[in-house]
Amino acid sequence: MNVRIRVPRFNAETDATPKFQEYTVTVTPQTTVLDALNSIRSEQDGTLAFRRSCRSGMCGSCGMLINGRNRLACNTRVVDLNNHEVSVNPLPGFPVIRDLVVDWDPFFAKDAVMLPYLVTDQPVPAEGERLQSRYDYERIDNAARCIQCGCCSSACPVQWSNGDYYGPAALTRAYRFVEDSRDTAVRARLDIVGTETGVWRCHTIFNCTSDCPKGVLNTENIQALKRKIMLTRLGLGSIAVKVHAPELA
């Protein structure tokens, strides 16, 4: 089966607007969008720039806007798009460097603001691990699946119009540590996210949850952060806030 793949060609150093180019690629039922892009680069046009690495949906390099939705090119099969025309675009809302390659620097900088490491005043046990109940592990399991592919932040209309918004990926990172029973810097992180560039910019559009390729409940996490901040401000910080994670198929 032949499909037409339409991609923008753009170089931030020389172009003001992208030009679109179409390639015809022969696909099998197993061909992924990434396979198709790889075959374009190696067989048709070496100038097509895009990122890829692991092919198995774990590294987060190949997040792209594919037929109107943010997905990973590597685990999206062309046949599943049910279309003979595939339009591939860089993640919206990110500065584009070239073709499908976006600038990750602002994205990772926001992640770093969230103190993305364990901060705790629990002493390191002399021997063995810190204990954590299965229940407490389940509380961070969903948020810890994040692969930083940017599909969520890039699907967020607030992020499109307001580049200062931390975005769902960074806020989910904050949530992952806020909910970690071993972490004691809850207040510090709530202060970081409880700002006009943080959780209060979220209007529960749910694009970030629906476009996450790993099933991370981004919007739900942000709402949980809001409730946590509110309860803390009202002096009711001890009340637990739950996100109900449905079983993934």
């Binding site: 364990l118 691990e129 204990l131 109940s133 961070i140 970690d180």
Partner: peptide, 19 residues
């Protein structure tokens, strides 16, 4: 492995709360 856990690696847990 314990050091990784102390750094915050989200290891799955046994019913006893161990790695």
């Amino acid at each position: 492995v314990y050091e990784l856990e102390h750094m915050g690696t989200p290891f799955s847990r046994t019913a006893e709360g161990r790695i």
